[in-house]
Amino acid sequence: MRIDLTSEPRLLQILRGVVRCRALEAGVPEPEAERLALAVSEAAANVIRHTYGGREDARLALEIRTFPDRLEFVLEDWGPKVCLDQIRHRPLDDVRPGGLGTYFMNCFMDDCSYDPDFAEGNRLRMIKYRQREVAH
């Protein structure tokens, strides 16, 4: 499924609801669905704050793909290219406001990567692998 929305911070709550709902439908346990919703919301918040500089009339799109072994969340924006060198969370022992969004994304997703072939803006692909059943 794919949803398109504007870069209004108030819409993050709806985005989280969609992620949470889709993850639950795909059989993800509720606590993990919450964590996935947080990770995607942080990614979208980063786009709103940093890529769009707080503009609320820009575009965002989220595509959620479910596979037998994983869930993929693909977030697209049409802003300036992200400088990968500048995406770094703050050291956790350096207690100050900010700098944790990317950390939470990396904690809750198994892989986060940008598509270098998406020329119009940024396409962030976040993957969460399903936990395998333990054979008894």
């Binding site: 989280r16 919450e34 942080e42 918040a45 207690v95 406001p97 900010g98 700098g99 969004g101």
Partner: peptide
């Protein structure tokens, strides 16, 4: 029920 990094940042501030 939910707090993200910007909420945490507010509390740290």
């Amino acid at each position: 029920g939910y707090i993200d990094s910007s909420g945490i940042a507010t509390l740290v501030e």
